[in-house]
Write a protein that binds this DNA or RNA. Structure first.
Length: 283
DNA sequence: CACACAACCTGTCAGC
DNA sequence: TGCTGACAGGTTGTGT
């Protein structure tokens, strides 16, 4: 599920219910995720009270009381298939429930990840910015640091397709495959255009489209693939707003007459990942 | 340094 | 029904 809008949706659900809660017990069922869960994680978090739950790019950052330079920060990444779920009792055992927290009010919080591309790590507050997973991340796409001048500067000289550049987390952090496709469509920019060949006008449209698509997706509670549900059990519904992603062969939503493109939405593979676009409206 | 691609792991679906 | 191959929201490591 997880690009920036999905992670932000999860963050909001967690923050609402867990801020101020104390972690009573932590059960580590399976540590071998993308990176191993630190064996001392339960011991370091049990008895701690959650101060805040924040987000950086696609990472969740769970902070604890008392705040300070040596306070622990739990870094959570959901990979491709990670979920965070509340269990108020009655959840049947699942082999993919890798980490289970029990809060002071009895709430159980479960980190579930079928493919185990995600990970859960611990850092210290003072070393967070330099942490290997976070250092080098580009600006937040919804922040002021991501503007036309910045994007133009970073695209200059790059001989990779603009689609691949948007997925580069060092350039801008949080865009994934779905929202890269959607933003390029909304901006009218071909995913195959070389980054260096993106005009200033197009860069401006791209910045605007990225911010707009991500903002609308967050408002919709993210996109739900398969049976994915948010922490509160609700389904995100932005997948119904996709213009091109997953719509190979369907008519473009905004081509005049619906079927103006003979082929409809096209699918190509770039850097090993599917790209969906309209060859008529994206140049 | 920049770029393309394989690898990581499990599940699902289409086609035969 | 069972098998095979393609594909899936991401990131990292390797090779050119």
């Amino acid at each position: 599920m997880p690009e920036l809008p999905e992670v932000e949706t999860v963050r909001r659900g967690l923050a609402k219910r867990l801020t101020g809660q104390t972690i009573v017990t932590v059960r580590l069922n399976r540590p071998d995720l993308r990176f191993p869960i630190p064996p001392d994680l339960p011991g370091r978090l049990e008895g701690r009270t959650i101060a805040s739950i924040d987000r950086r790019a696609k990472y969740l950052l769970v902070r604890f009381e008392p705040k300070g330079a040596d306070a622990p920060v739990m870094i959570v990444h959901l990979g491709m298939s990670g979920r965070i779920l509340f269990d108020d009792g009655g959840r049947p055992p699942d082999p993919h429930d890798h980490l289970v927290f029990t809060a002071g009010d009895g709430t159980r919080l479960i980190y579930n990840d079928v493919r185990r591309f995600g990970f859960v790590l611990l850092a210290g507050e003072s070393g967070l910015a330099a942490h290997p997973r976070l250092a080098g991340l580009g600006p937040e796409p919804l922040g002021d640091g991501f503007d036309t001048a910045y994007l133009r500067g970073r695209l200059a000289g790059r001989m990779t397709p603009i689609k691949s550049a948007l997925l580069d987390q060092k350039l801008v952090a949080g865009i994934g495959n779905i929202y890269a496709c959607e933003a390029l469509f909304q901006a009218g920019v071909s995913p195959s255009r070389l980054a260096a060949a993106v005009t200033g006008k197009q860069a401006g449209k791209l910045v605007e489209a990225v911010k707009d698509v991500l903002s609308r997706a967050i408002e919709a509670g993210g996109s739900s693939l398969r049976d994915y549900v948010q922490t509160d059990g609700e389904l995100g519904y932005f997948q119904h707003s996709w213009s091109v992603y997953g719509r190979q062969g369907e008519p473009c939503p905004t081509c005049p007459g619906g079927r103006a493109c003979a082929t409809g939405v096209s699918r190509i593979v770039q850097s090993g990942r599917s790209t969906f676009y309209c060859h008529r409206q994206q140049r």
